[in-house]
Amino acid sequence: MRLIDVARLLFGVFAVLFLIAPLIAILPLAFTSSIFLTYPIPDYSLRWFRELAVADAWRLSIVNSLIVGTGTTILAGVLGTMAALGLRNSGLILPGLFRTAFLLPMVVPAVVLGVGMQVFFVQIGFANSYAGVICAHTVVAVPFVVVSVSASLAGIDRRVERAALSLGASPLTVFRRVTLPLALPGILSGAVFAFATSLDEVVLTLFVAGPNQRTLARQMFSTIRENISPAIAAAAFLFIVGTLLVAAIALLIRSRSTQPKTPA
């Protein structure tokens, strides 16, 4: 092996390590029997997972995360898909402006968004409600759906839709039978992104959520300030497993939809 190849390999390994080192550091602590979130681990146990299931604060936050995550996924999925479809319309004026507007929440500081939302939500009586948290999460999740659906729409040959029209399908039927099935992988992976974004979101949640809408991420955030319990590591473990699971499901659906049938 030449020197340059070795260097390339080493660089790759370091880059990957740099990215996953924090995970490697925290995950084993989920299985500690100690009451401290520190190494060394005296013994392995599942006590902190039991704690997550039993303690009201943790249990409630997991349920909340699922409620908010599901709501965000549906709302952002629908809105983002519609936005991507609209952006595809060739008759649109200033398409660049609209696209930027839809992607803006990705770059606007979450703190700024959070302050604005809190003030606004209090005004309209939306604060401290599930709907408020879902709306807030949707704002930051929509760009992911727009990007993902836009990419899969861009892969659809317009002539395929034209062919469907020429074969007698009305525009609505073309959408239902051709555009939507072909865009489905993009919509699904957009939805996964939306769910993951919602799970992960802390800043907006701090501003708009009341005590009853405390999500898992928010609960972890306050726990680490109040008492540094290994329950955080256990929650992190659940987090990662959950995210991987959702991603795996999306991948599976995706590969099934594009996988060719075996030849007859």
Binding site: D157, R159, V160, R162, A163, A164, L165, S166, L167, G168, A169, S170, P171, V178, P181, L182, S257, K261
Partner: peptide, 22 residues
């Protein structure tokens, strides 16, 4: 008349088959 009411067969250069259907 919109294309779906013209009842003409159209064959495109790139075939334009529906990739998700057999």
């Amino acid at each position: 008349l919109p294309p779906y009411k013209r009842n003409m067969g159209v064959v495109f250069q790139n075939y334009a088959l529906f990739p998700h259907m057999d």
